[in-house]
C-alpha cells in the first residue's frame, strides 16, 4: 500500500474538526464523571438504606451495561418521552454518567483508605458530619486517587468513537467517512491514530502535572 501524502494532507482539516468534537465530549464528560462519581460514592455511604440501596442499584446497573446501549437509550428513547439534548450533550452525559460509576469506585477506595483513627479523631474533636468530610476525610481520600482518576480521562477519550452511534462525528468516524468517500483508508486512519496518540499523550502529561501538584496527602 502506498501512502498518498496529498490525500493525507487534504483530510487534515476535517479530521481536526472531528478531534475537536472528541475533545469537547471528553472534557464535558470527564467533569460530569468527576463530580457525579463523588456524589455516588458519598450517597453509597449514607446511613439511610433508602438512599444507599437505590444508588447502589443504579451504579451497578450502569457499570454493568455497555456504554453503547446507554447511548442508544439516551439518544433515541429519551426524546420520545420529551427529554432531548443535542447529540454532543447526549454523548457527554452518556460518557460522564458511565464513567461516574467507575470513578465512584475509585473515590470509595480512597475514602476506605483513610485510616479509622482519622474518623475517631474527628469524632473526638466533636466535628460536625459535614466538617468531618470536608476537612478531614476528603482532603486525604482524593489526593491518593488522583492517578487512578486521571487514567479514566484517557480511557474516556478513546471511547468517544462510540458516539458515532448517536450521530456525533468525532475523529474516527470522520476518518471512516473519508475512507468511504475516497476508498483510501490508510491515510485518514494513520492520521487519526497519530492525532489520538498525540492528544492522549498530552492528557497524560497534564495528568502528571495535576498529580504532582495535588496528588500528595498533606500531613494533617
Amino acid at each position: 500500500m502506498n501512502f498518498d501524502w496529498r490525500a493525507a494532507w487534504d483530510s487534515v482539516p476535517r479530521l481536526l474538526d472531528g478531534m475537536l468534537v472528541a475533545l469537547q465530549a471528553t472534557v464535558l464528560g470527564y467533569l460530569i464523571a468527576l463530580v457525579l462519581g463523588l456524589v455516588f460514592a458519598l450517597l453509597r455511604r449514607s446511613q439511610q438504606p433508602w438512599v444507599r440501596m437505590p444508588v447502589a442499584v443504579v451504579v451497578e446497573f450502569i457499570r454493568s451495561t455497555p456504554l453503547l446501549v446507554q447511548l442508544f437509550f439516551l439518544f433515541f428513547v429519551l426524546p420520545t418521552i420529551g427529554i432531548e439534548f443535542s447529540p454532543l450533550a447526549t454523548g457527554a452525559i452518556g460518557l460522564g454518567v458511565h464513567y461516574a460509576t467507575y470513578t465512584s469506585e475509585v473515590y470509595r477506595a480512597g475514602i476506605d483508605g483513610v485510616p479509622p483513627g482519622q474518623w475517631e479523631a474527628a469524632t473526638a474533636l466533636n466535628l460536625s458530619r459535614r466538617r468531618t468530610w470536608t476537612a478531614v476525610i476528603l482532603p486525604q481520600a482524593v489526593p491518593r486517587v488522583v492517578p487512578a482518576l486521571a487514567n479514566y480521562v484517557i480511557a474516556m477519550f478513546k471511547d468517544t468513537p462510540q458516539l458515532t452511534a448517536i450521530t456525533v462525528l468525532e475523529g474516527l468516524s470522520v476518518a471512516r467517512s473519508l475512507g468511504a468517500e475516497t476508498f483510501r483508508y490508510l491515510e485518514p486512519f494513520t492520521l487519526v491514530g497519530i492525532m489520538y496518540l498525540t492528544m492522549a499523550l498530552v492528557m497524560a502529561w497534564l495528568a502528571r502535572i495535576v498529580e504532582r501538584r495535588f496528588g500528595r496527602v498533606r500531613a494533617v
Binding site: P79, T80, P87
Partner: peptide
C-alpha cells in the same frame, strides 16, 4: 447516522 436502522430510529425519535 452509522447505518439504516439507526437512521430510521432517528426519524422516529425526532432526531
Amino acid at each position: 447516522f452509522p447505518d439504516q436502522a439507526s437512521g430510521i430510529d432517528g426519524v422516529l425519535a425526532g432526531r
